[in-house]
Design a protein around this nucleic acid. Structure first.
Lengths: 319, 319
DNA sequence: CGAAGTTCCGCTCATATGAGCGAGGAGGGC
DNA sequence: GCCCTCCTCGCTCATATGAGCGGAACTTCG
């Protein structure tokens, strides 16, 4: 018997004919059986052979920049609600961010319905999404955390909530406050500010949120970079692995409470977990563990990312 | 609406997921519908979309040197019983002949059953097939025509019938006589020779035959090359287009009787048409019209050829 | 604001399909 | 040569599937 599971060229060609009629011309097996004077069972077996021997190849394709096959695999692997993986080359962070921003914007445009309430975290990737956003159902948009001013970085991104709300045509619940303040008392006071309180009161009704995911390492999280060395190490010692919209979690995705928690202005771990869908826009190979932690902890259940990270995530999740 | 028939990335990924489960994992639409909480109709529509948009690509493949897809197309186009097209490069005639010989030998090994009676024509391609033949059901093998000695060409091919019969392990009906003789009387006399008469008496019981196809042009038919200039032109004038085992037919495949016919030692047009399956081994781009004529006339109903000629045949048949 | 077209959805029912089974046939070991 | 085994084939019956239909929602005009 030949490698292909066929006996000779006639068999091979017959199989190919049957396969073409079935797969390409869309005829039914019964029709084909009649045409070739075979039993429909024989036709079915020929088709099985054709599949098994690789005579018929079925591929799930690449009609755009979205790697649908990889998206699907990542979605299944991590049990996500939505997943968009672009096959953007990942060498220039700004380019990746822009591409992912566009992809996320399209995703959001597609899935947001007028009944939703949208929450936005403070992150450059979220800002990139806002820039790419062209259309959105008229939903309320809620700011989930204070902003962190990064020296030398354009901070217009604080306007993200307002920008998105303008595109959507819905109310904006936003405030000007930092993500973390020096002490718990100040945080407490800030939270009582009318704009902050109003935004916070809406957090529990948020149905979909968009955030970034940071790893607890230099340059991998805005919050990390804004934290003092001693506290960084203390938090690292306590297992902090990922940061999502100011929420810190360990490798299992369990929230890590700390002194820093009380000084934060923003959504809590419990609130974040309660949001039905949290979409994270993530890029960079260093964030594998962080993303896995965020997903395992139920903080994030949708992803927009690029193929390199997606593959690394699938590989790492399999272990 | 996007080009792909999908509305956005989520739709795209969903479609891809469904397609993967259906086409790659072989799950049923009902199962998939349950998994994704969709109606099975929705799943069916997504799959239709996926096919229509090119998200799912199905190809009939090339697992060997046989171009199954092209074979199939040629078979359908010309209404052949069997068809084997190899994708042999067609620049070196001897190589092509050897490849086609092998392919034809495999085909014959596969389709000949012990109930068959095999007829063989005199042609280099048939000889090539005989050389490649390794196994054959024990059937009688019948010589269909006399041989034409070509100066400077190895004529051991007259032994083809004996060789094939030896491989098969069946009786051989062969004779030593030329394909054409100078006058009808000689032909008549030769036909009465015991070996010749015996072979001829078997022709009507032949169930499958293998032959070459010649075009009526220099170097395109052994018979043409062995015919005098005057007769060549006379026959060309009468529309001779193809030569199959000594039988001459016009462009419509209708036999052309002539003075030459009476001088031939071999199968007649009527006998050839009566053979259930005549397999022609053909190569060379110059034979397009000849092959079409032979097939249209019902002289040939199976083909072993190479991709260039196959494509030309399909193109020419479509006109 | 209303009407008409358009699209999308899920139903019914006839048909196609797959799983599993037993009969028949070919091939191999004794 | 004979028997045994393995393989192939086509059947039955439960299930999956496709065609066509009518209703709902959404658009697009007037």
């Amino acid at each position: 018997m030949a490698i292909h599971g066929t006996r000779g060229p006639a068999q091979l060609v017959l199989t190919a004919s049957v396969a073409r009629r079935y797969y390409l011309d869309g005829r039914s097996k019964v029709e084909i059986a009649q045409e070739f004077s075979l039993s429909r069972f024989k036709v079915a077996r020929l088709l099985d052979d054709a599949r098994a021997s690789g005579l018929v190849r079925i591929e799930i394709g690449h009609p755009g920049s979205v790697d649908v096959e990889l998206s699907d695999r990542l979605m299944s692997t991590l049990g996500l609600k939505h997943c968009v993986v672009t096959d953007t080359p990942d060498d220039v962070p700004a380019t990746v961010r822009a591409h992912l921003g566009t992809a996320a914007a399209e995703l959001l445009t597609e899935i947001i319905t007028p009944d939703d309430v949208l929450g936005l975290s403070w992150a450059r990737s979220v800002s990139a999404m806002a820039n790419a956003l062209e259309r959105l159902a008229p939903v309320p948009v809620v700011q989930l955390t204070g902003a962190l001013a990064r020296p030398g970085v354009d901070d217009s991104s604080i306007e993200v909530v307002r920008d998105v709300a303008r595109v959507a045509g819905g109310p904006a619940y936003f405030f000007y406050a930092p993500m973390a303040v020096p002490d718990a008392a100040t945080a407490q006071a800030l939270r009582r500010q009318p704009e902050v309180a109003q935004a916070f009161s809406r957090i529990d009704s948020v149905t979909r949120a968009v955030a970034g995911v940071g790893a607890w390492a230099p340059e991998q999280s805005t919050l990390y970079d804004a934290t003092g060395e001693a506290e960084r190490q203390e938090l690292a010692r306590r297992g902090v692995c990922a940061e999502i919209s100011g929420v810190l979690v360990d490798a299992d995705g369990k929230p890590v409470r700390s002194e820093l928690t009380d000084r934060m202005i923003g959504i809590t771990a419990e609130q974040m977990r309660a949001i039905p869908e949290v979409i994270a826009i993530v890029y960079g190979g260093a964030k594998v563990r962080a993303v896995l932690a965020a997903v395992r902890g139920g903080m994030v259940n949708s992803l927009v990312t690029h193929s390199t990270l997606a593959e690394a995530l699938i590989a790492a999740a399999g272990e």
